[in-house]
Design a binder for these strands. Structure first.
Lengths: 245, 245
DNA sequence: GCTGATACCGTGGTCAGACCACATAAGGAG
DNA sequence: CTCCTTATGTGGTCTGACCACGGTATCAGC
C-alpha cells in the first residue's frame, strides 16, 4: 500500500474522531490536556495543537485557558461557525461562486418554507396547537418594524428571521447551512443594500413579504409559502445587483 | 470594546482571507514560505502552521514538501474535502443527526433533478443539443450494470452517480454539499447495505431507478424526475434501516 | 560540448523546551 | 470564618533545532 507516513496531526484528528464515534467522547466532555494527548499518541505538542485548531474552527471543540471545569478543550459540536467559515473562505478563494451560494440558499429556504407549511397543515388537521415554532421568527419580524434601523441592522434581523425559520423546521443540517450561506455573503449583501436607492421603500417591501410568508406558513399553504420565499429572495438579490455583478 | 487579544493564528487566517478577497491571492498562487509569513506578521511559525492547517483541512490550500514550483502552500479552493470533513465530524460528535443529513440530501437532490430536467426541457424547446452534461452520470450507470460488484463497490459508483448529477446542475455549492453529505454517512450506508438480505435484488432495483431518473431528466419531466429521486432515496434508507436506527 | 552523478539549498513536517496569561484551587493571615 | 496570597494546571505562543523531500546547480567523466 505504501501508505503516506501518517502525518502526526492527522493521527490526533483520527484518534479524536474515533473516540467520538465510539462514544468515548461526547458533547460536554473534556479532551485530555494537550501535553498528555501528545505523550499518549507519541507526537509533539505542536502537532496536537494543529489538530485541535482544526476541531476548534470546525466548531467541534471550544478551548479556554485557566483552570477549573470550564477550562481546557471541551467538545461542543456547534456547526454554525465552522460552516460559515468554510463557505466564507471558499467564496473568498473563488471556489464557490456567489451566484451558486444564492441559488443554494433558494433551494434550502423554499424547502424549509414548504416543510413548515406542511407541518402546520398536519397540525391543523390533527387539531394540535400550532405556531409554537414560529415564535422566534415572529419576534424578528416585530423587531424589524422599527423604522429607525440602518440597512445593516435591518439585514441582521432579516438574517435571524430566515435562520429562525430554518431552525423551526427542525433540521439542524439545513439550519447550519443556511446560516453559513448567509454569513458567507453577508458583506456582499450589505454592500448591495447600500446601492439600493430608496432603502425605506425596499425595507417596507421586505417587511410585507415576511408577513406574507409567515401567514402562508401558518395557514398551511405550502405552495404559496414556497412561491413567496422564492420571489422574496430572488427579488432582493436582483434589486441589489448581486446576481448580475 | 475590550477586543480579544487577537489570537496569533487568527491574525494569519484573516491576513490570508483578506488577501484572497482583494485578489492578491488567487487559486494556483503560492503562499509565502511559513517562516517568511511568520516574520512578516510578527508571529511564531507554529501559529502560522495552525492557520495553514485549518486552510488545508478546509480545502483552500495544498501543501507539499520539497522544492520547485509544485512545493509549498498553494491556493486550490477545492471544497469537497472540507465539507466532507466538517459534516463527518459533526455527525460523529452528534452535532448533526443522521436523519437530518438524509433529509437534507433529499432536499438538495430533488432540487438538482428538477433543475436538470427543466434545463433539458428548455434545451429541447430551443432545439439545442442536449444530454451532454449527463454523460458522466450515464457512465456510472453503465459501470453499475456489472453484476460482480460488492455492496461497497456498488455504493461507491452510486455515490459518484449522484455526485455527477449534482455537478451537471452546475451549482458548485450544492455539488460540494451533496458529496460531503454522502461522505459523512458513508460508513452508515455501507453498514446498512450489509443488513439488506437480498443484495442482488436491491441492486437491481437501484439500477432500474437510476435509469428511470436519467430518462425523466432527459425527457425534461421535472415533476417525475423529482418524485423518482425522492422515492429512490427514501426507499433505500427505509430499507437499510438508516432513518430508524 | 554533452551527459550523468553528486552536493546544495529551500521547503514543509515535527519535536522539544521554555515562557506567558489566565482562572481556579489550596493555603495562610487576620 | 473571611479574605488575601500563593500554588497549580491549563491553553497560547515563541524559539530553535533537526529531518525528509525534491528541485537545481555544480562538476566530473566522456
Amino acid at each position: 500500500m505504501a501508505d503516506a507516513p501518517a502525518r502526526a496531526w492527522r493521527v490526533v484528528l483520527e484518534k479524536i474522531e474515533s473516540d467520538l464515534l465510539e462514544g468515548v467522547l461526547r458533547p460536554g466532555d473534556h479532551l485530555p490536556p494537550e501535553r498528555e494527548l501528545a505523550a499518549a499518541l507519541g507526537v509533539g505538542r505542536s502537532s496536537v495543537r494543529e489538530a485541535l485548531r482544526v476541531l476548534d474552527v470546525l466548531g467541534l471543540i471550544r478551548t479556554a485557558t485557566g483552570s477549573g471545569p470550564a477550562s481546557g478543550a471541551i467538545v461542543i459540536a456547534t456547526p454554525h461557525g465552522g460552516m460559515a467559515a468554510l463557505l466564507r473562505l471558499q467564496v473568498a478563494a473563488r471556489g464557490f461562486a456567489i451566484e451558486d451560494v444564492v441559488r443554494t440558499r433558494l433551494i434550502l429556504e423554499t424547502a424549509v418554507a414548504g416543510s413548515l407549511a406542511r407541518e402546520a397543515e398536519d397540525a391543523r388537521l390533527a387539531g394540535s396547537e400550532t405556531g409554537e415554532e414560529l415564535a422566534e421568527a415572529r419576534g424578528m419580524l416585530a423587531a424589524m418594524e422599527m423604522s429607525e434601523l440602518s440597512p445593516a441592522e435591518f439585514l441582521a434581523l432579516d438574517a435571524r428571521f430566515h435562520t429562525a425559520l430554518a431552525e423551526a423546521s427542525g433540521n439542524s443540517v439545513v439550519a447550519a447551512m443556511m446560516a453559513g450561506l448567509r454569513t458567507s455573503i453577508e458583506s456582499y449583501v450589505i454592500a448591495g443594500a447600500e446601492r439600493v436607492g430608496n432603502w425605506a421603500a425596499t425595507a417596507d417591501r421586505l417587511r410585507a413579504q415576511h408577513r406574507e410568508i409567515i401567514d402562508a406558513i401558518a395557514a398551511g399553504d405550502s405552495a404559496r409559502a414556497t412561491r413567496l420565499v422564492h420571489d422574496h429572495i430572488t427579488g432582493y438579490y436582483a434589486q441589489s445587483g448581486l446576481t448580475a455583478d
